[in-house]
Computed example of a mutant assay.
Amino acid sequence: MVDRLVGKVAIVTGAHSGIGLAIADAFRAEGATVYASDIKAEPGNISPSSEARLDVTSEHEWDRLVGAVKEQQGRVDILVNNAGGTNYEYLHDFNVENWNSLIALNQLGPALGMRAVLPSMMEDGRGAIINISSIFGARSVAGIAAYHASKGALLNMTRNAAVSYARQGIRINAILPGWTRTPITEAQDPKLNEEFIGRTPIGRGAVPAEIAQPAVFLASDEASFVTGVELPVDGGYLAI
């Protein structure tokens, strides 16, 4: 299908590459006006035709981005909290600075994003927010303690927000990607990637476009009765 997001205004974070870039491209293909943002973008004017600088852990940068979008478009219909990262530290010897940095990126960042867009969505009586969590928000492996903590918290925040704002017409859902070929996974130890893919019933990893299409559905009016959902897009990983 095409044109499922015509007339919608969307913000996508972490859109420089990987899943975020694929979601931004898929939204545009469906007719949305998309503000793609990333910490790697150069500071400058905010417009749908260029990538906007956004540090998701900064209240000021969120206020600047959302303020500019509302000034130009009058509203924000869709927010995709995709920006995130990982580290590989165990609980018995984690670095506190690394822990706080990852929690800020994966947990505080989406919270600030929701806080930035929810007031105008409440005024409009509609909106859709998609939080990109992970299969490791719901299932554990050894190590990556801060990643588990942050992505698990993001799922709980999604459920809380879904029930808190449902009567205001705002739908809030999460996607739990399985192993996906992105710059982050390509930088990992190949043996680690082989292990994760080997546990996936479909027998392969995803490409970012396979995460983007479920995001299109959740952002569209086709999902008008869907909120509080944690949608695995994982090749069956969580079914084991």
Rank of each mutant, 00 (worst) to 15 (best):
A83V: 04
R53A: 06
L155A: 01
N173R: 08
V2G: 07
D38K: 00
A146G: 07
A111M: 15
L192H: 11
I39V: 14
E186H: 06
T158Q: 12
I23W: 00
E97C: 07
S133H: 05
Q213L: 13
A128S: 15
V69S: 12
F217K: 07
V6F: 05
R167Q: 13
R4C: 13
N98Y: 03
Q188Y: 10
T185A: 11
G31N: 10
I39E: 04
L108S: 14
Q188G: 01
V141E: 13
F217L: 03
L118F: 05
K70P: 04
A166V: 15
G203C: 12
R75P: 04
S134V: 08
F225L: 05
V207A: 11
S224T: 15
N95D: 15
V66H: 02
V76W: 10
P43T: 07
A68W: 00
E123M: 07
L112R: 05
V141K: 14
D221I: 12
F225K: 06
D77E: 06
H16F: 00
T200K: 14
F196D: 00
A219I: 09
N45P: 14
G127L: 04
T227E: 09
S224D: 15
A24V: 00
Y88P: 01
D234K: 08
L91C: 15
V96Q: 10
V76R: 02
G109Y: 02
A83Y: 03
R204Y: 10
G113H: 10
